[in-house]
């Protein structure tokens, strides 16, 4: 049964990818890339990758589609140029594809239980992580404790993305949006006419933020964690901005404070690492945080998930503010 679901989802993915390649209207491609991420996420669920499906859906369909839409909102929705040098590209692509297929010939079959990767490092995570780290969700325990330095790198990558948007577009660019709107005489640049939508969204935003907090602190026992919580929290803010306009949203939280929150998030994560250093353990070794190592692990994971959540939330909202502040430039 699972095989049939896998194969159908994969054929849908192939179909969407071909459609994305053929259609030349940018808006249609963005919609199809939204569907592509949804399909990917359901494929991940059917392959038991629950946290990854969570993140891929929240990021691929949510944030990426919203950012792409605000980009083509500020630029143009027409793809004019025909594909250049298709034959050469087809050659290169087929060559790489052939090498890859040649490479997978020796790989273990799909779902084969005695593949090497299931017998070397992974068994210890599955057996020992409850005694050593004390969280049911093995992925969270690896993410935050065994390979915690990778997650610090991940947080810094998100922080870099936010910094580059701030460096390239700049805070003043975002502030200028307000007076550019007023100059153009558009007083209410929001979806004022949608009364029903406004009430529903006003009702939903607090629930969404509450759900984000649930996901944040539920990371140990079920799918979820800092990154997913940050994205959902940011989608609550994005809902607010879409409904009530960028000016109102910027009055709620200004881009400058968002960059401070992001910096504090990364510093929380790094700070936990440095306190473990000062308390005698290695960098990011949570056992030294509390007398009882298991509690230390819980405290450490809690703090760094908080750091990841704050950083991701503030950077996602910051990038969205920067992109939607370019909206008025085109007219």
């Amino acid at each position: 049964m699972e095989l049939i679901i896998d194969i159908t989802l994969l054929t849908f993915l192939g179909l969407t990818a071909l459609a994305i390649n053929r259609i030349d209207k940018l808006f249609c491609i963005i919609m199809l890339s939204g569907i592509y991420s949804l399909l990917c996420a359901s494929l991940f669920v059917s392959m038991d990758a629950v946290d990854v499906a969570f993140t891929e859906a929240a990021v691929g369909t949510g944030i990426a589609t919203v950012l792409l839409l605000s980009t083509i909102g500020a630029t143009d929705t027409q793809q004019r140029s025909a594909p250049q040098r298709p034959l050469f590209a087809l050659l290169v692509v087929c060559a790489t594809g052939a090498i890859l297929v040649y490479g997978t010939m020796d790989m273990p079959a799909f779902g084969d239980p005695d593949a090497p990767i299931h017998h070397h490092v992974a068994p210890r995570y599955l057996e020992m992580s409850q005694q050593e780290v004390g969280s049911d969700n093995i992925v969270t325990s690896i993410l935050s404790s065994y390979r915690g330095f990778d997650t610090l790198g991940e947080t810094v990558v998100i922080f870099t993305a936010g910094l580059s948007v701030v460096g390239l577009i700049g805070f003043r660019g975002m502030q200028k949006f307000g007076d550019r709107q007023r100059a153009a005489g558009i007083t209410q640049d929001d979806m004022g006419k949608h009364l029903v939508l406004r009430i529903v969204i006003k009702m939903f935003i607090p629930l969404i933020l509450l759900f984000a907090l649930y996901v944040q602190f539920h990371g140990d026992f079920g799918p979820g964690g800092g990154f997913q919580a940050g994205v959902i929290f940011a989608s609550g803010f994005i809902f607010y901005t879409l409904m009530f306009g960028l000016d109102a949203a910027m009055r709620v939280v200004s881009p400058r404070t968002l960059s401070y929150i992001a910096a504090l998030g990364v510093l929380t994560y790094g700070g936990v690492g440095i306190t473990t250093l000062l308390m005698g353990g290695n960098f990011l070794d949570y056992n030294v945080l509390r007398p009882d190592p298991l509690q230390g692990q819980h405290l450490g994971i809690f703090l760094i998930e908080l750091g990841v959540g704050t950083t991701v939330f503030s950077i996602m909202v910051l990038i969205f503010f920067a992109f939607s502040s370019r909206k008025g430039l085109r007219q």
Partner: peptide
Amino acid sequence: SNPLPHVLILT
């Protein structure tokens, strides 16, 4: 299932 590739893919 093996949790390690999931962590790599999250990053």
